[in-house]
């Protein structure tokens, strides 16, 4: 099991974690609030500069592949279960239990719209997973005064994963050297054969947890006073500028929500989208504010050095 995050030392990886967290949350909020297919496409396109500049095209691609499978699943549910829409393209004969199934043009367009919404959301989550170091993410959450014990627990769990992996590997190897075959047999046999490792892994790990608790106590866990870090994330003035850029996206979505821009009714009839000046300006501002943290990220290093 390899960590999804790899430090590729690109401008996107160097961006402050707070900036990226706010940006990701804004894109997710936007993809939920916006219904309009054109604006959803633009939102998705705006995430691509992060992928290209962050050099995560291959890893991001596997997320997109998963989205395509999920889109097919979503399309089937919408077409079969939703009988809404006025343009019936296909009407099935009477089926047992299900009755007559009508596939409408509206349900197909709605499925496409929802697939684009899913693409935008998953793309944002992929950027979060692939470009933010889990330790930085947890430290940022702690600095934001969000539950300390929860974050600490997650942090210890992540820290122990490599050790547990070594344990797992050792246990598997020791069993195999004794001629124990794990991959043989049918479905039930394979599960039973593999399951034998878990109690040993648990026993080892519980001993480890006591050592870890003792280490925590000896380092003053539970005493009053602020928490200190070995590596503190530095926040420069440029970071504030990038955080402001990400926040502008939130502000835009709030305005759109108040003015009811970006909503679109798929049912009962598909209506053409009115391309007005305000619509074009909103679309333009959406692309600019969503893509700008990535586009301007190469400048951060230059400005910080100055």
């Amino acid at each position: 099991m390899k960590l999804a995050y790899q430090d590729k030392k690109t401008p996107v990886h160097r961006l402050h974690p707070v900036c990226k967290i706010i940006w990701v949350l804004a894109v997710i909020a936007g993809s939920i609030l916006i219904n309009d297919p054109i604006l959803l496409v633009l939102l998705f396109i705006s995430t691509i500069p992060f992928v290209i500049i962050g050099k995560i095209v291959k890893e991001w691609g596997s997320f997109v592949k998963l989205t395509l499978w999920l889109s097919i699943f979503i399309a089937i549910i919408n077409m079969l279960a939703s009988q809404h829409g006025s343009h019936i393209l296909y009407s099935s004969p009477m089926l047992p239990i299900l009755g007559t199934i009508n596939i409408t043009l509206e349900s197909i367009i709605f499925s496409i719209g929802m697939s684009i919404r899913l693409l935008a959301t998953i793309s944002a989550f992929a950027i979060l997973t692939l470009t933010i170091n889990p330790d930085d993410l947890l430290q940022t959450i702690l600095l934001l005064k969000i539950p300390y014990r929860t974050v600490l627990t997650t942090s210890i769990a992540i820290r122990f994963i490599p050790c547990l992996f070594t344990d797992l590997d050792t246990l598997q190897s020791s069993l195999q050297t004794r001629g124990y075959q794990m991959a043989e047999g049918g479905f039930l046999t394979r599960i039973k054969r593999r399951a034998i490792i878990i109690p040993s892994l648990l026993s080892n790990s519980l001993e480890r947890s006591i050592q870890s608790a003792e280490a925590m106590e000896s380092r003053g866990f539970g005493s009053k006073g602020g928490k200190t870090f070995y590596n503190v994330i530095q926040t420069t003035r440029t970071d504030y500028f990038f955080i402001a850029l990400s926040l502008s996206l939130f502000a835009l979505f709030a305005i759109m929500w108040i003015l009811r821009i970006g909503t679109y009714e798929y049912y009962p009839n598909i209506t053409p989208i009115a391309i007005t000046i305000s619509y074009v300006s909103v679309a333009l501002f959406l692309v600019l504010s969503a893509a700008s943290p990535a586009i301007f990220s190469p400048l951060k290093k230059v400005i910080d050095l100055d």
């Binding site: 600490l152 997650t154 769990a157 648990l202 790990s205 870890s212």
Partner: peptide, 8 residues
């Protein structure tokens, strides 16, 4: 805390 972290 340590127990929960390890079991997770």
């Amino acid at each position: 805390i340590s127990l929960i972290a390890i079991l997770s």
